[in-house]
Amino acid sequence: MVTQGTLHMTEQKRRRLVAFNLRDAGTLFGLLAISGLFAVLAPDFLTLHNLINILQQSSINACVAIGMTLVIIGGGIDLSVGASAALSAVLTAMMMAAGVPLGLALLAGLGIGLACGYINGALISYAGLQPFIVTLGTLSLYRALALIVTGGNPILNLPGNFSNIFNASIGILPVPVVIVIVLSAIVWLVLRKAPIGEYILAAGGNEEAARVAGVPIARTKITTYMASGALAFIAGIILVGRLGAAEPVLGNLWELNAIAASAIGGASLMGGKGSIIGTLLGALVLGAMSNGLILMNVQAFYQLLATGIIIIAAMLVDRFTRGRA
């Protein structure tokens, strides 16, 4: 009897694992299909150098998109990620240029990113405003602050050791890629294993029921926006490190690419559903496509066209495969 029960449970565990991976497998299949296509069309596509290049190019969007996925699962949206990244990165760069020690400046920048997220979350949770409108407002606000503090000019004379970090590699992987892998693993673990992960899924899936069940709704939502703000800062600082300069206009339209990666990866804008692995794969789909088209010397206009087609195709596949599993 007991062994039967245990067998039954492991069987269910396996089923759950399979079910969990089915959507991600779909995204992976999409990524492989696109890669296969470019491998044929663009001879240089399938080289180790280029594949690492794709990881490198996708890392910034992936970083922003992980945070975006958390917010979306929690039933919200964060349009201010690009502006949060710009504000926090620019202020960090100004501190570094003024001689503040590297670690301290980065820590302060992280604090600014968290604060940007906290303001979003607090306006949504305590004042009861709609996430779309709040973050649309703070998008302008944070961007304006970044432009005001810099007077619109890039911050240039950054310490050399700072840029060296982000242009270095660990083994064959560039540092930004390693950072994103580590961050993703942490977020994935939190979402699956920590109470806050269950709270985010619950609050996004049915906020009213979650409240009755005792889920701390405000704290949960604010946490997602703060995570989004922090990850936006890290993405911003990776870009500044790569370029060696902090532009106050950096991060323009990042929110759209991040939402696209989340959606391709299976996040539902209705909340309550999403996958970190899916989002990473989604970012790689977008990265691989842009890389492949560049290799083929296709005009940028067509890259935009392809992005649009991929998003809609992913949603259609989603729509028509639901309920079959």
Binding site: R16, E198, L201, A202, G205, A209
Partner: peptide
């Protein structure tokens, strides 16, 4: 449906949500 269950989550998650701490 509106206030009781978390429809997307498993029976286990629904039962556990209040006691996770």
């Amino acid at each position: 449906k509106k206030e009781g269950i978390l429809p997307l989550r498993s029976a286990l998650s629904n039962a556990a949500i209040t006691s996770l701490g």
